[in-house]
């Protein structure tokens, strides 16, 4: 009995951990793309102008990437706190 319960508990934690990892990997992939893929092409991207006249390469590094960072963290926090934790019964105990 004890063993079965603890085995169920173990697999619940393992499934939770896998789902956490999946979310982390997806968000880190986006983080990687917005941080590291555009700077090598900044010179070419600067020929495109957006909004009030920003050269695109400059804009991506100065505003684009950092805006995405803020959004990524809130997506992680809200999805973990409100969806994934609940799904696996790791709610607030109070």
């Amino acid at each position: 009995m004890e063993d079965q319960r603890s085995q169920a508990e173990q697999s619940r934690i393992a499934a939770y951990w896998r789902e956490n990892w999946r979310l982390i990997i997806i968000l880190l992939a986006i983080w990687f793309v917005v941080s590291y893929l555009h700077p090598p092409f900044a010179k070419a991207l600067n020929n495109i102008h957006i909004l009030t006249g920003f050269p695109l390469g400059y804009w991506l590094s100065s505003q684009g990437a950092i805006t995405v960072y803020v959004i990524l963290i809130f997506i992680y926090a809200l999805r973990m706190n409100r969806v994934i934790d609940k799904k696996y019964g790791f709610d607030e105990e109070e």
Partner: peptide
Amino acid sequence: GYDGLAYIMGWTGGYVLLALLFAP
């Protein structure tokens, strides 16, 4: 100029690592 933006991205992007990998 543009080269200074490494600091803007670096000093903010680290928080993504902090949130996903360390803080909780």
